[in-house]
Amino acid sequence: MKQAPVNIKNKRATFDYEITDTFTAGIVLTGTEIKSIRLGKASLVDTFCFFAREELWVKNMHIAEYFYGSYNNHVARRDRKLLLNSKELRKLERATKETGFTIVPLRMFINEKGLAKVVIALAKGKKQYDKRQSLREKDDKRDMDRMFKK
């Protein structure tokens, strides 16, 4: 029996941040974590990435405990290491030292080899008026679609 593809999104990130560049990173997981992700029991709400000892980590990512995990279960909100090549890591670290830039996860998925991947983005925070402008554009697009469907 083929499972539905896993595609967990951080919908809030595109609203709160202006995305400048994206990268696809691997993620270091334990056995029960990957099983929970395959069931779609993960959330990217309020997650962010940070550097520690020249390594990129994701903080506050919620992966629910696996139901059949028993005493082998993982901690739901632990820091998880992201895997990128050294050129990408240097580029991201240089960019985050500039003012206003941060790294946020946009999407988590399972690739065709069965490995969990995270799409991360180099982003700059939006101001309140930028958020209002985004909402206005979204409403205008919805109104235009309604008009053309009639």
Rank of each mutant, 00 (worst) to 15 (best):
P5S: 10
N7F: 03
I8K: 00
K9V: 12
N10K: 14
N10A: 12
K11P: 02
K11G: 14
R12T: 12
R12D: 14
A13Y: 03
T14G: 01
T14Y: 12
D16I: 02
I19E: 06
D21R: 15
F23W: 13
F23P: 00
F23E: 01
T24Y: 04
A25V: 05
I27L: 02
G31Q: 03
G31I: 00
G31N: 06
S36T: 02
R38T: 11
G40K: 08
G40S: 00
G40N: 06
V45N: 07
V45H: 03
D46T: 06
D46Y: 02
F48W: 06
F48Y: 03
C49G: 03
F50K: 11
F50Y: 11
A52E: 13
A52H: 11
A52Q: 13
R53L: 04
E55G: 06
L56R: 00
W57P: 02
K59I: 10
K59R: 15
N60H: 09
N60P: 01
N60A: 10
M61Q: 01
M61K: 01
H62Q: 12
H62V: 11
H62E: 11
A64Q: 10
A64E: 06
Y66V: 04
Y66C: 09
F67G: 10
Y68D: 14
S70K: 13
S70T: 05
N72T: 02
N72Q: 08
N73M: 09
V75L: 09
A76T: 07
R77N: 06
R77T: 10
R80E: 07
R80K: 04
K81Q: 14
L83T: 06
L83A: 04
L83N: 02
L84F: 00
N85W: 03
N85K: 13
N85Q: 08
K87Q: 13
E88C: 05
L89D: 07
L92P: 01
E93K: 10
A95L: 11
A95S: 13
T96V: 14
E98T: 03
F101L: 09
T102L: 12
I103C: 07
V104F: 05
P105G: 09
L106E: 08
L106D: 00
L106V: 06
M108C: 11
I110T: 07
E112T: 05
E112S: 03
L115K: 05
L115F: 04
A116M: 08
A116C: 10
A116P: 00
K117F: 12
A121F: 00
A123Q: 04
K124E: 14
G125C: 03
G125P: 00
G125K: 13
K127H: 09
K131H: 01
K131A: 12
R132S: 14
Q133H: 13
Q133G: 10
S134P: 00
R136L: 15
K141Y: 11
M144S: 10
M144V: 07
D145R: 11
D145Y: 01
M147Q: 09
F148Q: 12
K150H: 13
K150C: 09
K150G: 15
K150W: 11
K150M: 14
